[in-house]
Amino acid sequence: MKTRHLLVSLASVSIVLAMPAFAAENAQDFVDKAAVGGRFEVDSSKIAQDKVTDQNVKEFAQKMIEDHNAANAKLESIAGEQKLQLPVDLDARHKSELQKLRDAAAPLDQPYVEMQRSAHADAVSLFEQYAKDGDNAPLKAFAQETLPTLKMHKEMIEKIATTSTDSSSAANSTTPAVKTTDTPSPSAPVPGANSFTEDQAKDRIQDAGYSNVSKLTKDDQGIWRGQASKDGKNTPIALDYQGNIVSGKN
Score class of each variant (00 low, 15 high):
197 T>C: 10
191 P>T: 05
131 A>K: 07
152 M>K: 10
202 K>F: 04
169 S>R: 09
201 A>C: 11
176 P>L: 12
118 S>T: 10
128 E>L: 01
120 H>D: 12
194 N>L: 05
205 I>M: 08
154 K>H: 13
117 R>I: 11
174 T>K: 15
148 P>T: 10
182 D>G: 15
182 D>Q: 15
153 H>K: 01
145 E>H: 02
127 F>R: 04
186 P>V: 06
180 T>D: 06
180 T>R: 12
204 R>W: 11
167 S>N: 15
197 T>G: 13
160 I>K: 07
154 K>E: 14
137 A>Y: 11
186 P>Y: 15
209 G>K: 06
131 A>V: 07
191 P>Y: 00
131 A>H: 12
203 D>L: 12
204 R>E: 11
142 F>G: 08
153 H>I: 08
167 S>T: 13
126 L>K: 04
146 T>E: 05
174 T>E: 12
140 K>G: 03
137 A>E: 15
180 T>Q: 09
196 F>E: 02
189 P>T: 03
177 A>K: 08
182 D>P: 01
141 A>V: 11
115 M>A: 10
125 S>W: 09
175 T>M: 04
165 T>A: 10
155 E>K: 11
150 L>A: 01
180 T>Y: 01
172 N>K: 07
206 Q>V: 06
141 A>I: 03
189 P>V: 02
116 Q>M: 15
120 H>Y: 11
177 A>Y: 13
137 A>L: 09
123 A>R: 00
167 S>M: 14
206 Q>W: 02
175 T>H: 04
129 Q>W: 14
165 T>K: 00
135 D>R: 08
116 Q>Y: 09
151 K>H: 07
207 D>A: 07
145 E>G: 01
136 N>L: 03
155 E>N: 08
201 A>L: 10
147 L>Y: 06
156 M>C: 08
203 D>W: 02
130 Y>E: 02
193 A>L: 09
131 A>T: 10
198 E>V: 13
161 A>G: 10
160 I>W: 06
159 K>P: 06
154 K>C: 00
188 A>Y: 15
134 G>M: 03
172 N>W: 08
165 T>P: 06
140 K>P: 12
163 T>Y: 15
150 L>D: 01
188 A>E: 14
204 R>K: 13
186 P>M: 01
184 P>L: 11
155 E>T: 08
180 T>F: 07
208 A>D: 13
136 N>E: 03
124 V>Q: 02
198 E>R: 13
146 T>R: 09
148 P>H: 14
134 G>N: 00
116 Q>G: 06
170 A>T: 11
148 P>N: 13
119 A>C: 04
131 A>L: 04
185 S>H: 14
198 E>W: 10
154 K>L: 12
161 A>H: 13
208 A>K: 13
159 K>C: 01
117 R>G: 06
133 D>P: 00
